[in-house]
């Protein structure tokens, strides 16, 4: 039984290796040039950004092709002021301050007049918990819970994304890979890959869907500074938090599509109105 299993596993391994080799040869012969035509391509002052398409199924870096990206999304002006606004917004909108002080009515005691109004030669006082007293209430102190929720204007959020993507690409911190398939589920493989490619230490992998291949999910599960994220979760804070941003090609295209849609949509005035909590 054992021998049979051994033979089966060996066969499987060999068959895998064979397919792997053929795949590699095919890729070498035909580099993929991922280029799109845009409606406004005659009016580009900057040429579309060119990024190598890489693989992650081997530790060695292979250039599989070239990806051309829209300059409005990946070559925007590096507005660090807008990036800072976005980071501040992301930190603040979820922050609830629990600092708390008691006002004079909440401090225990102080119901009785400490001494008569007149005749003692002492200052007039009505309560020992008055804010003038030691141990008295606090005037205008912090009251818990204080929310700090606010919404950043919609197009400031969009500009935050384009600025951060452009900054990452300009600083050689953005890479595009063909897909997230890796041959092993060992964390050491991912660590070796990052070491060899001079990525990271912290790396953010972004794909279109939130269901990722099993190997990379298991391999990155225990490495806390290597994270996976779907496109819908991409944000300025996470992009800055990780040293390197690794997009799959389809994720890069989806981000491009979504941002270009927002930059050109006709009903943008609706997005720029005041944010209401009850948006019925």
């Amino acid at each position: 039984m054992l021998t049979l299993r051994n033979i089966v596993t060996k066969l499987q391994i060999h068959s895998k290796q064979v397919t792997y080799c053929t795949k590699a040869i095919v890729e070498q012969t035909s580099p993929t040039i991922s280029k799109r035509s845009y409606e406004d391509e005659n009016y580009f002052y900057q040429r579309p950004r060119e990024v190598w398409l890489e693989n992650i199924d081997t530790v060695e870096r292979k250039k599989l092709g070239l990806v051309f990206l829209h300059p409005d999304v990946y070559a925007a002006s590096p507005r660090i002021d807008i990036i800072q606004e976005n980071v501040r917004w992301q930190r603040m909108y979820r922050f609830v301050c629990y600092a708390h002080t008691k006002v004079r009515s909440e401090v225990r005691g102080g119901g009785r007049k400490p001494w008569p109004q007149k005749g003692q030669g002492r200052a007039r006082h009505s309560s020992i918990r008055s804010p003038l007293w030691r141990g008295g209430g606090v005037v205008h102190g912090p009251r818990s819970p204080t929310t700090h929720f606010y919404m950043l204007p919609f197009y400031t959020r969009v500009a935050g994304l384009t600025s951060t993507l452009s900054v990452k690409l300009a600083q050689d911190d953005l890479y595009i890979i063909s897909d997230l398939e890796i041959p092993s589920n060992e964390p050491s493989y991912v660590e070796e890959l990052i070491e060899k490619r001079h990525w990271g230490p912290s790396v953010l992998f972004v794909d279109t869907d939130d269901i990722m291949p099993i190997n990379i999910t298991e391999a990155t599960d225990t490495i806390k500074h290597v994270n996976l994220m779907p496109v819908y979760g991409l944000n300025v804070y996470s992009m800055l938090k990780h040293d390197t941003l690794v997009l799959t090609e389809r994720a890069a295209r989806l981000i491009e599509d979504k941002i270009l849609y927002h930059l050109h949509r006709p009903d943008s005035h609706k997005l720029m109105s005041k944010f209401k909590l009850n948006q019925q």
């Binding site: 409606e39 005659n42 009016y43 580009f44 002052y45 849609y261 050109h264 949509r265 006709p266 009903d267």
Partner: peptide, 28 residues
């Protein structure tokens, strides 16, 4: 259905009644 982008006008270089002129200059 509503268009997802603003429909491109006629970009032919001529006089239009509104006074609008199409962009003629090339980027460089």
């Amino acid at each position: 259905l509503k268009s997802k982008v603003i429909p491109a006008p006629c970009l032919e270089n001529k006089e239009y009644p509104s006074g609008w002129k199409p962009p003629v200059a090339k980027p460089h």
